[in-house]
Write a protein that binds this DNA or RNA. Structure first.
Lengths: 211, 211
DNA sequence: CGCGATTTTGACGGCACTCAAGCGCCGTGG
DNA sequence: CCACGGCGCTTGAGTGCCGTCAAAATCGCG
């Protein structure tokens, strides 16, 4: 454990709007989010961007870079954030000596795959309202499991970034937010969200399958 | 290497239509495709299915199961297939002793993540024609890199399965195939595909961004 | 306080979904 | 060998969800 502590002792601060790393740069380290909020997005050659994930405290970013030893997406801070740098070479060595760390690392990569499959399901088969209901309840849970309120939170990302993540336009995101508010599911004040009726929000998911 | 050979010596045959494993069953082994063709799909609680991947020779399936030590998707043979069974516990042990194997294993998981991000980009930002052009050129490359023809191949999956993978209905898949045929990009006879103009097929991707 | 960025809202249109009918291929059994 | 049935595929007509374009409103930052 002492060795693990030593491994992650280097901190790195990233201000809002700054890149933690860019696609194409070589992989030196993974990063664990210590505080703050970030997004990752893949960029297609024609310039299209797709947000693949939002990251918060406790999550590790950069796993996609292992395959080619270079990053395949941009990761940007959406608010001032603090990261633990984890030199990847050293991590691989350590996992050889510490089976529990190895386990943990493998599970982390696998969890990322499972998460991505969930997003694929969302993008491939849900309507706009379902996507957004899923997004909001998911965020709510993630905040809750970190000790923050599940009912009330602040969105760190723009409507456009939400739209990109969910495969929708920013206008559609905005409209669905308004509709949810009219229905009394949530209260929206700019980026401040209050969830009034989680149960009905959850029940939206799976209501109107698209195919 | 001898120990690795020993690790994967058990073979398992799966006939067309049979499950290699089902979501919820405990993870015992990963499987490498030795021959044949399979699909994996996640199932939402409301019954919706989403094909997350098609697998062919040389690819390893089951990586999603590591996170919870149980499978999170169904994997089904689309034609009679032969698998190498890789007991996961033994694999983890071996990777501790053989750094090159460890490397290889980590890259494999990471590659899966990168692949999934590509699918998310496809599902989140491409129109139907682009998705299908991407799908066809991707399949073509995968066949080519295995020594088969890049121009001519047999689809092992139904239009519905293609549609599920691409977030489209089977009718849309069928219509786009017909349109591509009219345009002279491809020739379609049921599941037999011949690619006539890869260049123009590729150039379709990125033409009409959706957002 | 003023400007740009972000968000909301409206009007409109099109792409892809839905529903439906018909066809073709293939395996099965007489 | 052929008739039959079922599944998969194609094609058409119509519709609706969501994208596009546009403008106004609001926020937040300097």
């Amino acid at each position: 454990m002492e060795r693990v502590d030593h491994l992650v002792k280097v901190r790195r601060r990233v201000k809002r709007g700054e890149y933690l790393y860019r696609a194409g740069t070589p992989l030196d380290s993974l990063f664990a989010v210590r505080s703050g909020f970030l997004k990752s997005c893949v960029v297609h050659e024609d310039g299209r961007e797709q947000v693949t994930a939002f990251h918060m405290m406790g999550e590790v970013v950069g796993l996609d870079a292992i395959s080619q030893e270079k990053h395949t997406c941009d990761t940007v801070a959406l608010e001032d954030s603090e990261m633990c740098e984890i030199p990847f070479g050293r991590l691989e060595e350590l996992t050889r000596d510490i089976p529990s760390l190895q386990r943990h690392f493998h599970r982390m990569m696998s969890r990322e795959i499972v998460r991505d499959h969930g997003v694929m399901l969302l993008l491939g088969s849900m309507r706009a309202e379902e996507r957004i209901a899923t997004f909001l309840t998911g965020l709510s849970q993630r905040f809750a499991s970190r000790g923050y309120s599940a009912q009330e939170f602040h969105l760190r990302m723009t409507r456009e970034e939400i739209g990109s993540y969910l495969g929708l336009t920013l206008e559609t995101v905005s409209r669905v937010f308004s509709r949810f508010q009219e229905e009394g599911y949530i209260e929206v004040h700019n980026r401040h969200i209050r969830i009034l009726d989680v149960a009905r929000l959850r029940s939206l998911v799976g209501q109107q399958p698209r195919e």
